[in-house]
Nucleic acid binder design. Structure first.
Lengths: 154, 154
DNA sequence: CTAAGCGCTGGAGTCCACTCCAGCGCAACT
DNA sequence: AGTTGCGCTGGAGTGGACTCCAGCGCTTAG
């Protein structure tokens, strides 16, 4: 058989052995078989399943939700529900990516700003940008930059 | 002067008041002024800074690293270093986004799979996909996809 | 047969990033 | 003047997700 041991799965996925065992205890990996001696044996299907769980976790689905997902059986009556849950999560991932992209431009703007200041050999004074944690008098005002209303996430 | 109080900053950014105070204690927000009574006053620049920190945190930069970033002064000699740090982080964000996109396709593939099974009214058998977390019991010559009753016994 | 390893289990410990008080002071309506 | 309420501080508590044992049992190489 091409079933593999826990060490191999760890190597294949990058999840630690402890994490794999912990996921199983927590009910995220229900289809791991054992060999007579009691050791875990991961069938190719089980390995694929580990990868799905890994994808869900890595994309921010809480362990609790993965468990709930896993626990609804594989029977016909659940396929729709499962698909819906995954779809919901997929949308969450997309929103997350969009947020990261917005944050990325904030960071890149900052980089550009620094590069410019570095070139000109200026401290940032009127633009602020960063603190000097010394005492500082108040700067004259400057206007607001438009912000996207964001809600705390992740 | 259009400086604002902590409540407003909380509303503007979505960060909780406690979090704002905690960030400050932890050295992530060095430029917050106080009014005579001791209350925090956030200048527009300070608010912008909060937004930068928020972007860094939301994109996964550990608090420790944000602090390190913040602590290197705003002097000329540091602009290059700061920019380099940010650049490094920007690349990390890009890698993260790429990973999310890969994981997203994993999830979407799974959705497609479920939709298909749902349409055909099939349980997943030869593809497995999900567990049978029944009692392990005795399966002498159990092999790979040997989907033993994958019915959930809820 | 013995020893070295890997794996197993249950449980404790750790880390991170907040979040939640308790107790107090200023502020400002009425 | 009173009282209602926001804000402040220091510190304790929480939740999530692992990570790290200790102690034991197969398995296998010598």
């Amino acid at each position: 058989m091409d079933a593999v041991g826990i060490r191999k799965v760890s190597e294949l996925t990058g999840l630690s052995i402890d994490t794999l065992r912990w996921y199983e205890r927590e009910g995220l990996l229900p289809l791991v078989e054992r060999e007579p001696g009691g050791r875990r044996r991961y069938s190719p299907a089980a390995v694929r399943f580990v990868r799905l769980v890994q994808a869900l976790r890595r994309t921010g689905m809480p362990v609790q939700d993965v468990r709930a997902f896993v626990r609804m059986g594989s029977g016909v009556e659940w396929h729709g529900r499962r698909a819906a849950l995954l779809e919901e999560h997929a949308e969450a991932i997309e929103r997350h990516i969009a947020q990261l992209q917005r944050d990325l431009t904030v960071v890149r703007d900052k980089i550009a700003h620094h590069r410019e200041l570095a070139e000109r050999g200026l401290d940032c004074e009127d633009e602020i940008d960063l603190a000097e944690h010394g005492s500082r008098a108040k700067s004259p005002d400057d206007s607001e930059a438009g912000g996207t209303g964001d809600t705390t996430e992740e």
